[in-house]
Design a binder for these strands. Structure first.
Lengths: 338, 338
DNA sequence: TTGTATGCGTTATCAG
DNA sequence: CTGATAACGCATACAA
């Protein structure tokens, strides 16, 4: 066997008959070299099967060409869509993705972000704008660009949507149909500004219309189909049963509708259901789900692009708010005449 | 402001009145130090807000405490489940995840894996066992542990399932119900050994029973609900329409069933549908989907644990095959009497 | 048990 | 344009 260990800049340099420094330049600042030299170096590198060692490069240059992403969970259609786009976009520019998840736990997020920073990520992408003071501190101490997704605090960049408006839109739709007794199944409000925003929007629409949203009409659940069923079960047992139920995310709405159907109710004749997110699935369930389109994939793509901008020039670029839009399908209709 | 730049081992050492090396040890091999010294160092580190610089640590030690994962796509319930568990498991042991996706493109996978290796990952987790020769070469050249998920070639470790058996199981179920004219919607066979295995299993069951699976009864599609609908549309237009349709993944089966229902067919009275994967969703669609349970999350968890073992001791540990199991629900029943 | 000194593979700063 | 050479921040063999 010819070579046993991995070749480094030194080996390439020797083979090309130039200095180590020249090889380094050939690989990172090609235009700085003579065409002739450049060719020799590239050839030598190829022949030796040279692979740059990013760890060393990162240490010497301070930049690692990695971006850290901390999401609540990887196991979510929403975040998966966004992540896929983030990965694709960053990858095109030669960046690798370092991912962490924290299960909606602020402390875990703090540790995770600290870990990402320790690993020397050049930038950080996170979800939402609510986090521990200590987390913000360590982000600022790191001195690297930050992009918040979905929503975020003013002083850092953000690519997201108006969650309040999304909530308002879907509630308004039901109100317009004639509903006044509306139930809501939402994710946990604590530590989740997206969910809080959506609920607030729903509240706003209701109160604008002169209707109330009693605490009993709001069921806080985990974010899964099963939890949607649970939440629906609770709401259906109210003495004054709602004529429509909003799931603050489609997953909950879909679970809820399934539960109602399981109990013999006809959707939307007996009761309406609506969500927020517009999952691919929501168009295919029976009946298809009325919802609010939230461009998850685009949030991911734009966040990544935003990050690339910041990496090039660290000046904050502010907030980007993507439009959301009501998507009316078959799961909603006017309430049955009492 | 007291300190402007980030403290390093040197600063901590100075403050604790020990040598740089001692601090290094205090953080990585605590048991090597006197309790008293250890305490002093930790205190100094805490007071200075010391954060280890993994880039430097990686370069000096050769180990980066990162694991690379290359999946076809992040935007898939299956891979998302597995990834979540991988992340959770590795994270507990202090490892970070470097993820890449390649859209089922072998060349892209090759580049992605090369990139991960360049970044110095300590181990590699991939999906399936089919990849370019060049990719295998670079994996071997890297000299780091590899774990294949779902299925893989013999000479590298693998945590997966028997895809052939999964296909066999679901086909056998339909055959047992009395079906003989079965249609299949599968993902692209090329570059996807999981899909090939499943189709082969289906073929085996059919031929064991003395039935044929004509080419026209197999529709190759992308892996999405929409593609399932498409595939179903094709199969329904055959002169000898199948009495049952298998989706090689639940996503396809669900899409197919939706398409059939959209065309006025009653499932399962007019036509049966079955899948493989057992997505959370599959239990909730109407009618609930008969399928084969594939423990995606466990594949992820066990792969990660397997990787941790390999990281500790690089001796290959062979293949782990997790059991799959038929889950009979409401979407299948005997064919209608002609 | 602790300190000293060297090197990890690149980048970047100076000269030449 | 190219060649020496000093960091980068930490791990570790070796010495004490």
């Amino acid at each position: 066997m010819p070579r046993s260990r991995k070749p480094g800049l030194a080996e390439v340099a020797a083979r090309a008959g130039v200095s180590l420094a020249t090889v380094s330049r050939a690989l990172s600042q090609p235009k700085m070299l003579q065409a002739e030299t450049l060719k020799r170096v590239h050839e030598a590198a190829r022949e030796l099967g040279y692979r740059p060692n990013r760890k060393a490069s990162a240490l010497a240059s301070g930049r690692s060409r990695t971006v850290g992403v901390a999401v609540p969970t990887l196991n979510s259609a929403i975040f998966a869509e966004a992540l896929q786009e983030i990965q694709r976009t960053l990858y095109e520019e030669g960046y690798q993705l370092l991912v962490a998840s924290h299960e909606y736990d602020p402390l875990a997020e703090s540790v995770a972000i600290g870990e990402l920073v320790s690993h020397g990520v050049d930038g950080l992408i996170v979800v939402g704008g609510e986090r521990l003071r200590a987390t913000w501190d360590s982000v600022e101490a790191a001195g690297i660009p930050l992009v918040q997704m979905w929503c975020g605090v003013d002083r850092f960049d953000c690519v997201g949507i108006d969650n309040v408006h999304a909530g308002w839109l879907i509630a308004r739709h039901l109100i317009d149909l004639g509903h006044s007794r509306i139930g809501v199944i939402t994710g946990h409000q604590r530590h989740n500004d997206r969910q809080r925003g959506r609920l607030r929007g729903i509240r706003n629409a209701l109160s604008e219309a002169g209707f109330a949203l009693p605490g009993a009409h709001v069921s806080e659940q985990a974010l899964s189909v099963g939890s949607g069923r649970l939440g629906c079960a609770t709401l259906l047992e109210l003495s004054e049963r709602p004529t429509a139920i909003i799931g603050a995310v489609d997953l909950l709405a879909i679970g809820a509708a399934i539960e109602a159907q399981g109990r013999g109710l006809v959707v939307p004749d007996d009761i309406s259901f609506a969500g927020i997110d517009n999952l691919e699935f929501s168009a295919h369930v029976a009946p298809s789900l009325t919802t609010v389109e939230v461009p998850s994939a685009e949030i991911g793509a734009r966040s990544a692009r935003h990050m690339l901008d910041l990496l090039r020039n660290p000046e904050p670029k502010g907030h980007v708010t993507l439009p959301v839009e009501l998507v009316v399908r078959r799961s909603t209709r006017p309430p049955p005449r009492a």
